[in-house]
Write a protein that binds this DNA or RNA. Structure first.
Length: 322
DNA sequence: AAGGCTACCAACCGCCGGGCC
DNA sequence: GGGCCCGGCGGTTGGTAGCCT
């Protein structure tokens, strides 16, 4: 059963022939599309108006960008999808020359699998639970090696390469070229986060280093948060923890980090609120992002706060003091 | 070489909301 | 207010090319 407009006349379906394309291009360039339902008749096509519209928008439009997606575009898709979900049309608006259909197909064929292989849930962008990861392993040859959950500060990493990485549901910030921000305590270090709090929180260069392959760059630190007993929230922790600050400084040595900085202090309160919501099991960032005029700057700052979302079960060890 | 499998992508389907009468 | 038409959107399907066994 076709669309209403398609039932009025006998219409052709399936792939478009070059002749049909020519007719449609000629008609639209000369007359514009006007009412799509009248296009087939005026253009001399045995197609439904919807089909003409789709063909034009997805394939024939002159301003379409041809070729495969760039790493930059891929990152934009991931970033925006993290906030908006499957709103392909909205996502496509941030990619000039790309269509929602194209973005959707690229997501389903490439990015989705990539995220899964990194242990990320493509829907929520959160790390998959151990069970989910286990079930995913059967479908994903290159998934991360099995890793146990430790402390929330142990690892901020998804790495398919690092055997001694301790995986947990912790912040992950993705960068172009699949660089992934991650904080990790090497397995030789004390695994109890409280055990090392008395140590100097300021890491030296030997304790923070790029780690992993070109596809998985992991930042490793032996340092741990400096003030677990007064944690006002992870947002503040980002500011108060020199370890993480120093880690961000390292980004400068890598290719064009997308996240240029953390939120200004006044945003911390908002972030705290978001994290509180997350603690209640709610991760809903869409409410403030319904507008068409979505701001990538906002997105980036949001991502930094979003970087602190994740499986709160792993956060239970900490004495939250809101 | 042939059949099976997988990935990719163009196109379709069905639903929804807005505008018009 | 209700029905109809239309455009837009997200989900899904089906064809095809390439790879693997």
């Amino acid at each position: 059963m076709g669309h209403r407009c398609c039932t009025k006349q006998k219409v052709k379906r399936g792939l478009w022939s070059p002749e049909e394309d020519d007719k449609l291009i000629k008609h639209i360039t000369e007359h514009g599309h006007g009412s799509w339902s009248s296009v087939p008749k005026l253009a001399g096509l045995q197609r439904c108006g919807k089909s003409c519209r789709l063909r034009w928008i997805n394939y024939l439009r002159p301003d379409l960008k041809k070729g495969s997606f760039t790493a930059e575009e891929e990152q934009i898709i991931i970033d925006v999808h993290r906030i908006l979900g499957n709103r392909w049309a909205q996502i496509a608006k941030h990619l000039p020359g790309r269509t929602d259909n194209e973005v959707k197909n690229f997501w389903n064929s490439c990015i989705k699998k990539k995220l899964l292989s990194q242990g990320l849930d493509p829907k929520t962008h959160n790390l998959l639970s151990l069970r989910q990861r286990a079930s995913n392993k059967t479908a994903c040859k290159h998934s991360s090696s099995s890793q146990s959950q430790q402390s929330a500060f142990t690892v901020f990493n998804i790495s398919s390469q690092a055997n001694d990485t301790v995986m947990m549901n912790a912040p992950v910030v993705a960068f172009p070229n699949d660089q992934t921000m991650a904080m990790q305590i090497p397995s030789s270090e004390p695994q109890n986060p409280n055990a090392s709090y008395a140590q100097s929180p300021i890491p030296n260069e030997s304790t923070i280093y790029p780690y992993g392959s070109s596809l998985d760059t992991t930042f490793v630190s032996s340092s741990t948060p400096s003030s677990v007993h007064q944690l006002p929230g992870l947002g503040n922790m980002l500011y108060e923890n020199p370890c993480i600050w120093d880690a961000t400084a390292i980004f400068e040595t890598f290719e064009e980090p997308r996240v240029e900085g953390l939120q200004p202090p006044q945003q911390q309160e908002q972030d705290k609120e978001k994290i509180c919501e997350t603690a209640e099991g709610k991760i809903d960032m869409d409410a403030s992002l319904e507008s068409d005029s979505f701001d990538l700057g906002l997105l980036e700052s949001t991502l930094m706060s979003a970087a602190m979302y994740r499986d709160l079960s792993s956060m239970d060890d900490f004495g939250w003091n809101f």
